[in-house]
Design a binder for these strands. Structure first.
Lengths: 399, 399
DNA sequence: ACGGCTTAATTAATGTCGTCATTAAAATGG
DNA sequence: CCATTTTAATGACGACATTAATTAAGCCGT
């Protein structure tokens, strides 16, 4: 159904992209590995790799072990071919990180968002300030920057300029890309935070090797990223994967989105704590912020029947939500991430079991349900992969 | 992320596929239309089209209107280049239809499935008998058949040989493809009935022109087909889209799948009738079969408050289910099909409204919710498109 | 230490294919 | 009937991958 013309040049472009991607994602590799991995002929691989080396994207790095015969050279991405910036615009802070192409963290800086300090202009200012700051800290020049990726906890509508809806920040159709573009002309890539986290887990974490995976992000809010055939699923306007606001309990608890019975109204951190408080007949849950309150709930489970029950119910709800993802998307792997999911890691067996009760047998049997490997702060890392994904897709045709 | 090599031949293959697809889906078209539509140069189009004509896939059919200048020739698929068979294995019957490539119905035959007559071997027998029958009726030869597409109301696991799980037929891991392949060596394509219906609506009905669409099929059971970027979304083992068994009312009505609160347990025809009977305090709903019972419910809505309420609730549940699809898949279009949805066509405005209440604003605003255009019997038509989809994808490289 | 063997990488020859520029074909209209 | 216009077909050219043949660079045993 792809109605796009192919020309001889596109052959080279595609092969460049395939080889560069493999070297980046699975490298270091030898030319022979590439021959076997792609099905291209030796001369074709050598030819393209030669170009990549000439252009400074790829380097030879030592010889591989050999037991007889000329040893092959290892090929890897040149880490300092460019640097990339990853930004995590969360509900409580803006975090800016600088990486090289080996994904080594070169510098990072964080700006807390005080209550009410979530004005779009403020956030854009933090991003621009952070950009300057990490570049200065790492003694990197602006011209080295391949691009800036930004993960936002909200619905991001792609277009000429990305527009953000984020209830938790109080944002309504905020033209974030335009705001930031006023302060820099670096290439910007803005995406939903769950999607960038999914991208990070896909490349470097629990998603490695899967072609179809769903990344469920449970924090204060709840979201998901769906990867199909190795590509993040976006839908018509890039807002696919809004799992948190699917109806799980028809007519149930009111959700901050305005509807009732959303999954987020049951398994989002805020909702869990609310449910715990209600189970305690209104007594406040100890702790200053949601994270410590949730930790208090988990800690109380050993001695408190009430806490135990709230957690069990949480696992049931979460399992049912995961079952819905399995039924609809038929993934090989479901990866649970986000800080609340990490805090509730002990519930994993119960979640698996609950999902098994609600999902259809066949797709359930083919999906594994796991925890994310990259921890909580993978949103910025994933955001930083956005410019790299573009580099790989275009085969590194920058000029 | 596509790690498949490209070679010069693949350029031709791809362009053939693109041109052939356009001629089939949007034809008849002139060479100039193709030039404009694909971006290929005139000679390239002429060259490929020349091959297609030589091979008998495409024919020139009259000249286009012209006001000055040499008139261009219309190009269309040769309808009798091949014939295709579409089979609908439903819960109550097996229907076999024969089409030419213009999708003209050449012959059809139907075998009812009496109670208990749903043995896999029986069904396979019906398919093979139907195949012989339609070929004989249309005086077509076996060698003309491009392939046989089969839509089954159950979960179809693709592999070397497709395996079917169908609760309503009492099938558990039935190797349907192997059973049928024993009786014929024609190429077989087996898929879920909702997916084939979606394919039919996508090519010839309410899905035309959309890149991202969800087809919701409401009959006795409930299913969905998701099309992303013009391609049916299958997931890891082709069982994606099992919308009917997603949890909508946590802990709610028991579903025949064994779980509780599934969407199907509320808006499947059987469930609607059950709910109506319960609302009537157990009095049976008039009518011999589900179709007439549902019709009775719809007819009673004018005078019966109870019937009205059951229908209103149905619209609410269905709307919530549609909202979940919108939130998760972010489609441009949601198409409601299946016989029950058609019977409930008057509920469409109420469904739209209910979906609006439960879905997020942004994705809801971008999705239109419509009825299918092809009626109830599009499953076989869609199944017949499966071999054609293969023909188009390979550019018609059969030998 | 030196020839034989193996594996890696490059070079040369061949063929596919789309593009650009040009030419031939086929209508309309004054 | 010829100028004009638009469509289709040719031919020279260049981009690329492929196969086959070389060259490069290491092991191993005597």
């Amino acid at each position: 159904m792809e109605l796009v013309r192919a020309t001889n040049r596109s052959v080279r472009l595609r092969n460049r992209s395939a080889l560069l991607s493999r070297i980046f994602l699975d490298g270091p590799l030898t030319r022979q590995d590439l021959v076997r991995g792609t099905g291209l002929s030796q001369p074709a691989v050598s030819n393209v790799v030669g170009d990549l080396i000439d252009e400074g994207l790829v380097m030879e790095a030592g010889a591989a072990e050999s037991d007889g015969g000329r040893p092959s050279m290892m090929l890897r991405i040149v880490p300092r071919y460019a640097v990339v910036v990853g930004v995590d615009v969360g509900e409580t802070r803006v975090r800016v990180e600088l990486f090289d192409l080996a994904m080594t963290l070169l510098a990072s800086v964080e700006y807390p968002l005080e209550d009410g300090g979530t004005e779009p202009a403020t956030v854009a200012g933090h991003v621009l300030a952070g950009l300057d700051r990490v570049l200065a800290d790492a003694k990197a020049d602006r011209s080295e920057v391949l691009g800036v990726g930004i993960g936002v906890s909200g619905v991001v509508e792609q277009g000429t300029h990305a527009v953000v809806d984020a209830q938790t920040l109080g944002w309504d159709r905020v033209p974030l890309q335009r705001l930031i573009a006023e302060g820099t002309d670096l290439p910007l890539h803005i995406d939903n935070g769950a999607k960038t986290l999914g991208q990070a887990e896909m490349w470097f974490g629990a998603g490695r090797g899967a072609r179809h995976a769903v990344f469920a992000l449970v924090g204060s809010g709840v979201g998901a990223a769906v990867v199909t055939n190795g590509v993040t699923y976006r839908g018509a306007s890039s807002s696919a994967g809004e799992w948190g606001h699917t109806t799980l309990v028809y007519g149930g608890r009111p959700c901050r989105c305005g509807a009732r019975g959303c999954l987020e109204a049951y398994v989002g951190a805020e909702a869990i704590i609310d449910r715990y408080r209600e189970a305690r007949r209104g007594r406040a849950v100890p702790g200053e912020d949601e994270e410590s309150q949730l930790a208090a709930l988990v800690a109380a489970a050993d001695r408190s029947e009430t806490a135990r029950r709230v957690l069990d119910e949480t696992a049931d709800y979460l399992g049912a939500g995961v079952a819905n993802l399995i039924n609809l998307f038929n993934p090989e792997r479901v990866v649970l991430g986000g800080w609340a999911a990490m805090a509730l890691a002990d519930l994993l067996p119960a979640v698996r079991e609950a999902a098994g009760r609600q999902a259809l047998r066949l797709p359930y049997a083919q999906a594994s349900i796991e925890l994310g490997q990259l921890g909580v702060d993978a949103v910025a890392l994933g955001a930083a992969t956005l410019p790299i994904a573009r580099l790989l897709a275009t085969g590194g045709t920058r000029p």
